[in-house]
């Protein structure tokens, strides 16, 4: 696995939680939302993560009728998921600043 994909994996989990905590989405929609933010990941890579988040009870999926007709699996965040998101944000902030500073120093 490339360094980029290893780095992304953990971060992606947090991003999926963040999107799902804002609104209920289905898989395709979710991958579009990530791309709209400029996150360049292969669309399929969200599914193993969605499965893992479900296994850990951070989100749950429900088959529902979509506005356009067919049944789709929509994802909802759980209380445990919200806690995990808060923890992720905390960890992310703690890492982001020092990393940015280190990188900035090197660039400058």
């Amino acid at each position: 696995m490339s360094m980029r994909s290893q780095l992304l994996k953990g971060v992606l989990e947090g991003c999926l939680l963040a999107v799902i905590s804002n609104e209920t989405v289905y898989g395709y929609e979710l991958s579009k939302k990530l791309q709209d933010q400029g996150l360049e990941v292969s669309e399929g890579s969200i599914y193993p993560i969605l499965l893992r988040l479900q296994k850990d009870d951070l989100i749950f999926g429900k088959m529902e009728k979509s506005p356009s007709g067919p049944n789709r699996k929509y994802y909802y965040i759980t209380d445990k998921g919200r806690e995990a998101l808060v923890e992720f944000l905390y960890n992310w902030e703690a890492i982001k600043k020092p990393v940015d500073q280190l990188m900035g120093r090197k660039k400058g």
Partner: peptide, 26 residues
């Protein structure tokens, strides 16, 4: 089966945008 259904839905939507399987799933 739920997963297979989800992946198929995704692939169908991607296909409408002219994407190939490998572009979506690697």
């Amino acid at each position: 089966e739920e997963l297979l259904n989800e992946l198929l839905d995704h692939l169908l939507e991607a296909q409408e945008e002219g994407k190939e399987f490998t572009e979506v799933f690697g």
